[in-house]
């Protein structure tokens, strides 16, 4: 929980700074945290957030996030 608090604070700071790359990375980190704890729905929410910013930033990680979302049945 402490870890998630840290990530969420960092996400807010990244939003405030308009730092897309940081948002993509932080949301993906939060997603990983949730998914590893078995919280699939919440994990997919964060994964989606990270996916969008990775797409916008043109990050290579977008492809991997997309694949993961498809595997989880949350993307086509």
């Amino acid at each position: 929980m402490v870890m998630l608090d840290r990530i969420e604070k960092a996400i807010l700071a990244a939003h405030a700074a308009g730092n897309g790359q940081a948002m993509a990375e932080l949301y993906a980190e939060a997603a990983q945290h949730m998914l590893s704890n078995g919280q699939i729905e919440r994990g997919c929410f964060y994964l989606t957030q990270g996916y969008v910013f990775a797409l916008e930033e043109g990050l290579a990680s977008a492809s991997g996030i997309h694949t993961r979302l498809v595997e989880l049945g949350h993307e086509i």
Partner: peptide, 10 residues
């Protein structure tokens, strides 16, 4: 994103 509900993207 989230068009099919939270985290559901289709």
């Amino acid at each position: 994103p989230h068009v099919g509900g939270p985290g559901m993207n289709f």
